[in-house]
Design a protein around this nucleic acid. Structure first.
Length: 565
DNA sequence: ATCCATAGCGCC
DNA sequence: AGGGCGCTATGGAT
């Protein structure tokens, strides 16, 4: 396999094999042909950023097997204080984070020139990263992480290229059923208008705008209701005829604003919803998306995500991924035993740790997030007694964060150090003349950061598992069917994937999803016996995996949707 | 007209 | 006093 460094310079693409071959310079529009040739002979592409070139290669019909995305690699290595030394001094170019870059690429009036690395920078950075990894006692983990991260960059581009199959006609029917027909000239749909009227007359404020929290809060006070905010859960506890229509109004106006007709016009084209995915856009290594709120498609509207005729959707999510990953990280055999089978929370009940599944969930999430009060806090001692290793791992991460230290995921992504105010606040509290206010502030800050680092190690490791899962799945799918009839990934949501597959290959696609999950688990956790269970379904519509939120059923019922109550 | 912080809520 | 996000409308500041 040949390693080929690539640099993009405006309308030119420069290539050079790392075995010392001479440079080739191509017109950008002739690049796809050359890439296709070299890809056939088995290349690994090394470039600064996958999104500089891969989208246009995909449009030209070229799919690449593997790459090294140096930008993503640098973001990991430059911070991995625990698993390796950062790469030797690098130029400023590499220091910007994936999230910052995505931010910069938002369309602005003053479009600034895109900053790109030249070929020498690419080659030098690749050498630095290779050396940094080779010098690490944990090089195996880092190599896996970097490989998965780069595969993720290819996948992100491919997800955007293919898009999520989305039926705007179904979407329109859903919206019409919930809100009334689309108003021709803007304005509120009929159902919203009606609810607004009910709220206004119940509060005797004919021009109230409930979309303004301060105005709404004042109105509630005037009506004799003592609310401190206009949040749903607080409003729902109030007893007043305005509350029921108000809650429904808020729900529906939110739906309209975030995922209404305008949203579909803007983001769905030719039956595909194409958000921009940003690998490592989140500090923990989770992906972010830009545009369209792709990671927040409301369950209520998922029925509009439908397979093409003759095709199906394989929808799979990793059930209780984070606690399972935690069990493996901590080598907590007892928690791993509870995780055997499809439902870890039920496992806790069966193991007599807690009485009900609901309690198990609250307790486990509390451990992952750092709950100290309420039901979750009360259940914590039992969880600690039952699973000292797993709970100890997240406790240690929290304590490290409270001391201002960096924590690291299983494969080697480190948390950012605390911000610049950290040292100031902490030292102010240790000052001899520090008052109780300074003390309190410092303790608060430390606890807050501890909750962040506590969750970081688990959320980040879960993101790594998901990445390995998806990367291996991508390879398996590439081996199925002829190119035009080949299953491909169309969606990724932290611990959930959707594959669009021809009917005839649905079973093979399912099998690939399962095998890829097993491979990811083995790659990351070796022989430790942990069951990373999948909930998996082959469906025509995404809503079929969430029966309770199926809007078609809601519409057929011809009454106020139960979901909104 | 444009930028920014905040409140609120959607997802995991 | 439960982690991570993106997005919208609002309302004050520029």
């Amino acid at each position: 396999m040949e390693e080929i460094a690539v640099a993009v310079e405006d309308d030119r693409v420069v290539l050079q094999g790392l075995d010392g071959a001479t440079r080739q310079e191509l017109d950008r529009d002739e690049a796809p042909v050359r890439f296709a040739e070299l890809e056939r002979s088995g290349a690994r592409w090394i470039w600064a950023e996958t999104k500089d070139l891969y989208p246009e290669l995909l449009r030209a019909g070229i799919r690449l097997e593997r790459c090294v995305d140096l930008r993503l690699g640098h973001a990991i290595l430059a911070r991995s204080t625990y698993l390796t030394e950062p790469p030797a001094a690098t130029d400023e170019f590499w220091h910007r984070s994936p999230a910052d870059l995505a931010e910069d690429e938002q369309p602005t009036l003053l479009a600034r020139p895109v900053e790109r690395a030249d070929l020498d920078q690419v080659i030098a950075e690749h050498r630095r990263q290779t050396e940094a990894v080779a010098g690490s006692p944990h090089r195996g983990r880092l190599r896996l992480l970097l490989a998965a991260e780069s595969a993720g960059a290819l996948i992100a581009a491919e997800l955007h290229h293919h898009g999520l199959p989305f039926d705007v006609a179904v979407h329109d029917r859903q919206l019409t059923g919930l809100l009334g027909p689309r108003p021709r000239f803007g304005g509120r749909p009929a159902v919203l208008e009606g609810l607004l009227g009910e709220v206004r007359s119940a509060l005797r404020l004919p021009s109230l705008n409930p979309d303004s929290p301060p105005e709404l809060l004042r109105a509630l006070h005037t009506a004799g209701l003592d609310a401190t905010s206009t949040r749903q859960w607080e409003l729902s506890k109030l007893d007043h005829p305005a509350i029921a229509p108000l809650l429904t109004y808020k729900k529906l106006s939110r739906l309209l604003a975030a995922n209404g007709w305008g949203w579909a016009d803007q983001w769905v084209h030719d039956g595909r919803f194409r958000p921009d995915y940003v690998p490592a856009g989140v500090v923990t290594g989770r992906w972010a998306t830009r545009g369209g709120g792709a990671l927040q498609i409301p369950k209520l509207l998922r029925g509009a995500v439908t397979a093409d005729p003759g095709w199906r959707l394989v929808v799979a999510d990793a059930a209780q991924l984070e606690p399972r990953v935690l069990a493996a990280m901590a080598s907590d055999h007892r928690l791993a035993r509870a995780a055997r089978g499809g439902d870890l929370y039920q496992g806790l009940v069966d193991e007599r740790v807690v009485e009900t599944r609901a309690k198990a969930k609250v307790a486990m999430l509390g451990a992952l997030y750092g709950a100290t009060t309420g039901e979750s806090g009360q259940l914590m001692p039992r969880l600690i007694r039952a699973y000292p290793r797993a709970t100890g791992l997240v406790e240690d991460a929290a304590r490290a964060g409270e001391r201002g230290e960096v924590v690291t995921t299983w494969l080697g992504r480190s948390s950012p150090p605390p911000g610049e105010s950290w040292a100031r606040v902490q030292s102010a509290a240790s000052d001899a003349e520090a008052g109780p206010a300074e003390q309190r502030r410092a303790r608060q800050q430390a606890r807050d950061w501890g909750r962040f680092t506590r969750n970081f190690v688990v959320q980040g490791t879960a993101a790594e598992w998901a990445l390995c899962w998806m990367a291996d799945l991508r390879n398996r799918l590439a081996g199925l069917g002829p190119p035009e009839q080949r299953p491909y990934l169309v969606y990724f949501l932290h611990d959930e994937i959707i594959v669009h597959t021809p009917d005839s290959l649905a079973e093979q696609a399912e099998q690939a999803v399962r095998e890829a999950a097993a491979t990811a688990t083995r790659l990351m956790f070796g022989s430790f016996e942990i069951d990373l269970a999948l909930d998996l379904a082959t469906v025509t519509s995404y809503a079929e995996t969430e029966p309770a939120a199926d809007p078609v059923e809601l519409l057929d019922a011809e009454e106020e949707p139960a979901v909104l109550d």
